[in-house]
Design a protein around this nucleic acid. Structure first.
Length: 407
RNA sequence: CGGAGCGUAGUAUAGUGGCAGUACGCGUGGUUUGGGACCAUGUAGUCCGAGUUCGAUUCUCGGCGCUCCGACCA
């Protein structure tokens, strides 16, 4: 893409009101636009990042048997009454509205009910199970106080997968696969080294839930990390008894701030019961279905990646989620730049081509802010030196390479 | 939901009971071209409503909105 066609512009300054690093950098660089507190629009660059993250998650979910679908955002009150979660005393962060005829409806804040309700119609035999449907979807939560830029919004984008299993062994098997898939996702988006499988409070169906927590000062959660075992415990279950059951030594644990970038938990029959989700086994006996829940907030994940990958000049995107791989910058007018751009495009590379007539300093400053992993500079100077300058965003110095080596 | 702060051009900010200023951006002309370059010139603003006042952007009240701390976070 040519930068002259990108309508967004970078900004040197931002309101002192915007304090979170992710919102500051993403706003200044033109990735997101704040509509209101906790609600952001995704501009062209931002959407490209979200799509990259989405594809990584999709690949990992598909690889463990996930099957993608999309449940509606407007939700029927009746199905939420089945689980008891329509009641504002039970769930206080609903966005509710109504139809012209006065019927009350809600904007989905989670997906268990929708999935359970749909599957009731399609699952009846052991032959139909197990299944692992998932959504990418906008979610709405009427938080009393949203904060931290895109880390905690009132409207956000997530992936939610639910497992529907025939028995505990089958459930546990998938649960373990999901853990591995999740860790792969964090590795692939470049924050694996800072992300810990964290034990958190469970429910009647399991002692613990599991969170994936990424270490950063921007985090809202306090966790206790065992770096050697690559495990952590959320403050909410940090007791001697729990540590003992997990075979963790208090002396090895360090208190850290972290962002919850995903969580998985066993639902048991919490939803299959009220929705009457059952199946018949080989003998024709009716059996209960066991569920699990596996969520990742994509917008939060994007914000977290920024929080842990930036310097004083701007963002430093991991290649896997960067909006483009190359930022091609031409200084002064030259036809070679256009040629390089076309060739890279033909090769299928993602290139942002800064074809504007601006000063070198301005182009470099903007490039650093936008944070694309590889910067290619072509100028009189580079051509005289033998080609183009190739520089990684996270390295100080680039090197001159022959133009041909780019392709 | 408790506490605190804030709202002035597209952006970031200053200031004042009586002409609203600066920087960036944007437009035009020119000089520049390896770290947000320079000169000239133009452009554009007091969140909404009520009150006090001869006069309110400024003071008072209400609304709306933004931010921070805490509580909350299926």
């Amino acid at each position: 893409m040519k930068q002259s066609q990108l309508f967004t512009k970078t900004r040197k300054e931002i309101s002192k009101d915007e304090v979170s690093v992710n919102a500051q950098l993403l706003t200044r660089a033109g990735y997101i636009y704040k509509e209101m507190a906790g609600v952001y629009s995704y501009l062209p660059l931002g959407l490209r990042v979200i799509k990259k993250i989405e594809n990584i998650i999709r690949e990992e979910m598909n690889s463990i048997g996930g099957i993608e679908m999309k449940t509606s955002i407007l939700q029927n009150k009746e199905i939420w009454e089945k689980s008891g979660r329509w009641d504002d005393n039970i769930v206080d962060n609903w966005f509710k509205t109504e139809l012209k005829n006065g019927a009350k409806i809600g904007l989905s804040f989670t997906n268990e009910e929708a999935h359970s309700n749909i599957l009731k119609q399609y699952v009846s035999s052991y032959k139909d199970l197990p299944i692992y449907p998932y959504d990418f979807k906008e979610i709405f939560r009427n938080e009393v106080r949203s904060k931290s830029g895109i880390l905690r919004g009132r409207e956000f984008y997530w992936k939610a997968l639910y497992s529907f299993s025939r028995n505990e062994a089958e459930h546990n098997d998938f649960y373990e696969k999901a853990k591995v898939a999740y860790q792969k996702i964090y590795n692939r988006v470049g924050i694996g080294h800072l992300t810990y499988l964290t034990f958190a409070s469970g429910s009647t169906f399991s002692k613990f839930s599991h969170e994936f927590q990424t270490l950063t000062e921007a985090g809202e959660d306090i966790i206790y990390v065992d770096e050697k075992k690559k495990m952590a415990v959320n403050k909410e279950v940090y007791t001697d008894e729990v540590l003992q059951s997990l075979e963790l030594d208090k002396k090895e644990l360090v208190e850290k701030k972290a962002v919850e970038v995903g969580n998985i938990f066993t639902l048991g029959t919490k939803f299959s019961e009220p929705f009457g989700l059952k199946y018949k086994n080989e003998k024709g006996e009716e059996q209960r279905i066991l569920m699990g829940s596996y969520g990742i907030g994509l917008s939060r994940l994007m914000g977290t990646i920024v929080e842990v990958n930036h310097d004083d000049k701007g963002m430093i995107w991991p290649e896997s989620v960067a909006p483009f791989k190359y930022h091609l910058i031409s200084l002064g007018k030259n036809e070679e730049a256009e040629e390089i751009y076309n060739k890279l495009q033909e090769k299928g590379e993602e290139v942002l081509f800064d074809d504007r007539e601006l000063s070198a300093g301005e182009k470099f400053a903007e490039a650093d802010l936008i944070g694309i992993p590889y910067r290619i500079v072509i100028s009189e100077k580079s051509l005289q030196a033998g080609g183009v300058e190739l520089k990684k965003r996270n390295e100080e110095k680039g090197e001159i390479i022959e133009v041909q080596k780019l392709f």
